[in-house]
């Protein structure tokens, strides 16, 4: 169990690192997916530890939600590309204006 927790948190932190360091919007999306993946792993791991189907069921739900999120995210990236001409998140500072 410790192994799964450690691996999962390491993956999550790798995702955090990516989220903070990626320049490209798609890269940011990848980082988010990585973090969701880590969370998924945790769900499966705890399901494995306690037994029963609930862990895997929720992991499945999470996967579906993650896919939906990727779709919306990509749509946003396309919109951003169209309105700004690039998808550099470090350039998108309209929030401050």
């Amino acid at each position: 169990m410790t192994a799964i927790l450690l691996i999962s948190s390491a993956l999550f932190c790798a995702g955090v690192y990516g989220l903070l360091s990626q320049r490209h919007a798609v890269g940011v999306l990848i980082a988010i997916e990585l973090m969701i993946n880590a969370a998924n792993l945790l769900l499966v791991g705890f399901g494995w530890r306690t037994g029963g189907a609930f862990g895997q069921s929720f992991a499945l739900f999470t996967m579906a939600i993650a896919v939906a999120e990727v779709v919306v995210g990509l749509a946003l990236i396309l919109l951003m590309y169209r309105s700004r001409g690039d998808v550099q998140v470090d350039q998108a500072t309209e929030l401050a204006q």
Partner: peptide, 14 residues
């Protein structure tokens, strides 16, 4: 501090 860059805000969050 308000750069408008989402990643800078995420620094604060994480």
């Amino acid at each position: 501090l308000q750069t408008g860059n989402v990643q800078d805000y995420l620094y604060a969050v994480f």
